[in-house]
């Protein structure tokens, strides 16, 4: 009886020892030497794996951070300055000053503004619709309304407005990771400098057609008249391909341009209401 017990113990011990030896050699053979700071940096990152930094995930970004010599071009838009400062301490470097940004939808082609010329009946995907044709309106630059951007948002900062059929960005939740910018096949979404009280002034249009066709396709299209360019005291507005663009880093929110726009393509968001300001019902799309 006791011999059976002893044999069992011996057998199991031998097996255990054998396994341990094998494991040891395997571990030696496949050993990966890794900078321990990568782990520390990964922990400091938000861990959303959103890809907003341009890398496939937080760990890949951490590797890039550790390998790099400066923070030039490396920024975690989600964690912002705080996270970057923490990482700077870990890596013993100087953090770069990065301006906080926010995503903005540059299209106001609601069914009221841009009349539907056809109904899209394919797969609910902007990319599919974009590859197919110009879209449901006469404007081949505008929002397709299938919500690829909303689907790409990992922070619940977007939703599709059922009335305007346009995406809405919730400023307080948006971390400017840029996922929606990449998801949009028409490049309607732009990351702009975040201003105080989330105020913004921007051209809510991407139409590069000449004035006539642009206006015909959408009531609030930028027709490329150039009035805003002339009135801007800070040279923040440029005109290219019949489309105005307000550089958010130069814009001082002086509000001179918006009243000049004959079509109402320039939107002002977050300002106190002016007495003589004309009603802008489409504001709901972006506010």
């Amino acid at each position: 009886m006791s011999s059976t017990v002893l044999l069992t113990i011996a057998m199991l011990s031998a097996l255990g020892l054998l396994a341990a030896v094998i494991l040891y050699f395997v571990a030696q053979k496949f050993k990966v030497i890794e900078d321990p700071r990568i782990d520390t940096v990964t922990e400091a990152l938000p861990g959303a794996n959103c890809g907003g930094c341009g890398y496939t995930g937080c760990r890949a970004f951490a590797e890039a951070l550790v390998k790099s010599t400066s923070f030039e071009g490396l920024n975690c838009p989600v964690g912002g300055a705080e996270t970057m400062a923490k990482i700077a301490i870990i890596l013993d470097r100087q953090p770069l000053a990065v301006e906080p940004k926010v995503a903005v939808v540059r299209c106001n082609g609601t069914p009221d503004n841009a009349t539907r010329t056809s109904y899209y009946d394919g797969a609910v995907s902007c990319r599919v619709a974009h590859a197919l044709y110009g879209g449901q309106t006469g404007c081949q630059y505008g929002c397709l309304g299938c919500g690829d951007c909303v689907e790409s948002c990992k922070f619940d900062a977007m939703y599709m407005d059922p009335v305007t059929e346009l995406p809405v960005i919730l400023d307080d939740k948006c971390v400017a990771c840029g996922a929606c910018v990449k998801a949009c096949p028409r490049n309607i979404i732009e990351l702009r400098k975040r201003n105080k009280k989330d105020r913004k002034i921007f051209i809510s249009c991407m139409n590069k057609d000449k004035g006539g066709p642009a206006r015909k396709a959408c009531k609030v299209a930028c027709i490329g008249c150039g009035k805003c360019v002339k009135v801007c005291p800070y040279e923040a507005i440029t005109m290219e391909n019949n489309l105005a663009f307000i550089d958010s880093t130069k814009c001082k929110l002086c509000r001179k341009c918006a009243p000049e726009c004959p079509t109402g393509a320039i939107l002002e968001i977050g300002f106190p209401v002016k007495e003589a300001k004309p009603a802008e019902p489409a504001d709901a799309a972006v506010s």
Partner: peptide, 8 residues
Amino acid sequence: NILNVSPS
């Protein structure tokens, strides 16, 4: 007629 458009 406003036409339906879909991929093939």
